[in-house]
Design a protein around this nucleic acid. Sequence first.
DNA 1: AGGCGACTGGGTCAACTGTCCCAGTCCGTC
DNA 2: GACGGACTGGGACAGTTGACCCAGTCGCCT
Lengths: 203, 203
Amino acid sequence: MVRMSAADRRAALIEAALRVVSREGLAQATTRAIVAEAGMSLASFHYAFDSRDELVDELIGTVVARERKAVAPEELIAAAGAGASLAELVEAGLLRYFDHLRADPEHEQAMLELTQYALRSPERHPLAVAQYDRYTDLVVEALEAAADLTGARWRLPVEHVARVLVAFSDGLTITWLVDRDDAAAARVAAAAADALSRMADPR
Amino acid sequence: MVRMSAADRRAALIEAALRVVSREGLAQATTRAIVAEAGMSLASFHYAFDSRDELVDELIGTVVARERKAVAPEELIAAAGAGASLAELVEAGLLRYFDHLRADPEHEQAMLELTQYALRSPERHPLAVAQYDRYTDLVVEALEAAADLTGARWRLPVEHVARVLVAFSDGLTITWLVDRDDAAAARVAAAAADALSRMADPR
DNA sequence: AGGCGACTGGGTCAACTGTCCCAGTCCGTC
DNA sequence: GACGGACTGGGACAGTTGACCCAGTCGCCT
């Protein structure tokens, strides 16, 4: 038995829960499965959390807060070449995201499952909204950087552009999770980048 | 008590199950909830189906087989005007799908949940693949009709174009289910139509 | 009319799940 | 080194769920 503070225990349980959800799905993430994954006893669970619902809510908050830009703009320049166009930059960014998806499909599947779970009850709906707001914010940053780097200027509010890109990436994700067709995903990325780049005036 | 054939009973249970899944989610679709919705006793369930899993599998098959083109091409012409461009036609089609989504969001949410459920086990994965193949087939038909009507010609295999459109519609669906932002969904539809139309040579 | 098989209702069972409790153990503080 | 509270392990409990069973009922065919 390992002694740890309540805060550490909550964090450890959340990590364990994320692993279980990724591996087996939210429905299989029972309190017993989670504590087994964390190597704790069942009592520790209810010492750290009032209920399973409380843990799941906090799990969503945690993964959302932890979500990072898949790519730094500098990386993209390196990947796409110095004289890259906006479309090429956006496509490189999407492909980078796709690499990330391919490296850990279960994680994205878990995120999707958590979203759907949150959508199912009115009081948890805001969690899903926050999740997608976060996605949009990250994309906004990337799009602004991409515009800066290429000297282009978004013709729409960049939040609108980002919202479209979030939708496209989500579609790319689900369809790829279903058919695992890399070439098809690449075509989706190219089409999305093309559409996006037309929302900007090049300089 | 109503007497009905085993086939009718299976069908009635599947309809009831779809209603429960739409209204409350797959996790809440217990055998008891389903028979209550169908107005039967629990024994009737296991007379008609060997197990709940068998019903869920058949439910997926049923809803996939039932999936119809949201729009007939003639309708689109009426909606988009006689001299509509390919991009306008595709956008009109997407908006028509969006109307359908807005009219019954719970149904699309249920479809998404069933997909994720199927993705979770290797032996059910093919059900998800079949579901998306069906989507793609429907879109292929619509895209061919749209090209005919405008005299355009797809530069890529139309299946590839359709696969991209399926991804885009899926993204439109999920993001709208989360934020219910009609204007944002319209922008996604416009961007998707724009990207798609560039995959064809106009005549 | 009789009989056979399809069908139904109600009850039952074991497994699982979330939650709780209690007796005991450990750690930092005085 | 004693003490109080933080922490842990094992067990228990009630509710839910999928599955099943059996006695009985009904419709159809001969």
